[in-house]
Design a protein around this nucleic acid. Structure first.
Lengths: 237, 237
DNA sequence: GACGGAAAGCTGTATTATAGCTTTTGCAAA
DNA sequence: TTTGCAAAAGCTATAATACAGCTTTCCGTC
């Protein structure tokens, strides 16, 4: 990298490289799975060192816009909730977001995903949703398992809404949910309350299976009302 | 960096470093503005080269979890919608998300932010929201200016909801909105329709100023119904 | 105690080197 | 001609070094 007379201005080459690469994706209309040029080629093309290109590609990989792999050229990535999850978790860890706020967002969105899922779910999606609800009931002695099915249940509904943005957002809350779910579970003192929660999930699943958007939405809202109440009871918020 | 006998396994050191640094943030309970150790220190601490640490820090900077600056040690970042915006824009550019899906999400969320804003807005926030609505009306000859006030109007409402997650999500749609807004505007053929849109914004602002959550939510929904209809008319979707 | 400048500390970029993974190429066998 | 496989070419991952230029700290002076 010869710097002929050019005064070596110390600025943000990496930011520029990120912009150049995203522009490349736009202009060449690259789609998920498509290859990006090799690091050395980009380095040549944008007249910066491979160091800069690598930092830019790593940045894009962190955002899940590209996928990197040893020996492989960078490829365009499929939509993924991981980077959104990082933002949310960072907000929670640094006290910029609290749990009640996340539940408010989830309640707002999941009323809609329940409605859409009831309208649009495929048969396979309906069975998957119902399967998770029943698995929750059947695993009543294993909180960990119940939690995983609970999370999978909500994500399955979001996917069945056929709107990837909803799925993205709900997926992003996964990590945080995994950390707070046990608190809500413990605050449901007796088996009756716990059983009621599982029953509500099953009712909701059935509304989606039946293709009843009104009922699905109502039940989802009731579910969140109860979950938020449980968290408040636990003094979490 | 001495590698004593240790077989130099080629794996993802950077991913490990990212995890180590986020763990550091968690364990030390660092808050926005707090300093992270210098690159050389992290390099020593995690036993990887500065190259690896830099790529990890760049990744975290892309996610806006840390801020970097020449000569300055890395600091913990404030919550920011930029990385979420990158995800959304990537989804749109690569045909994984379409505009109608984004409008459905916005409609769902903004019904709620309107409600919350009516309940929680400070006086200053109320005036800012109303100010943008009136500026839209007054700039009727300058579409660019109307658009910017429109976007600012919605973000101001999201902020006034006092839930940073809503603000994050709505903020993330900004870039895409900026690209599609003119299409909706052009599809509103006559001045009457355009005036009606501006009037609706003002009505909504007044509902928030008045602290009327019911009206605010209803008007926001009506606004989105009309916007979506305009985009459909334009054949965008 | 206030101020200013030198020194120390730190980041940004470039370069070189090398291990090891992936893809391509080309030859040989069926 | 096609299949299979191995060598070669291409590429990424990490490390180490060098140095410009920005920031912060520290110390001496007034």
């Amino acid at each position: 990298m010869i710097q002929l007379g050019k005064p070596p201005v110390l600025g943000d080459f990496v930011t520029g490289a990120i912009a150049s690469i995203t522009r490349l994706i736009r202009e060449k209309e690259l789609k998920p799975g498509d290859y990006l040029p090799a690091e050395a080629v980009l380095s040549e093309q944008f007249q910066v060192s491979r160091t800069v290109i690598r930092e830019a590609l790593r940045s894009l990989a962190a955002l899940h816009l590209v996928d990197l792999g040893t020996g492989k050229r960078p490829t365009i990535a499929h939509l993924d909730d991981a980077s959104m999850a990082m933002t949310i978790e960072h907000g929670v860890v640094t006290d910029q977001i609290d749990i009640l706020q996340i539940y408010d967002v989830r309640r707002t969105i999941e009323g809609r995903t329940a409605t859409l899922a009831a309208l649009r779910r495929s048969e396979a999606e309906a069975q998957r949703i119902l399967g998770h609800a029943r698995a929750m009931r059947d695993a009543s002695s294993d909180p960990e398992a119940i939690m995983e099915h609970d999370i999978a249940f909500h994500i399955a509904i979001a996917r069945a809404s056929r709107n990837p943005v909803f799925a993205l957002i709900i997926g992003a809350f996964q990590g945080v949910t995994r950390q707070t779910w046990p608190i809500g579970w413990k605050s449901r003192a007796d088996d009756g309350e716990r059983h009621a929660m599982n029953a509500l999930h099953e009712e909701l699943a059935l509304a989606i299976v039946d293709g009843n958007p009104q009922a699905a939405s109502t039940l989802m809202n009731r579910h969140f009302d109860q979950s938020i109440k449980a968290l408040l009871t636990a003094g979490l918020i």
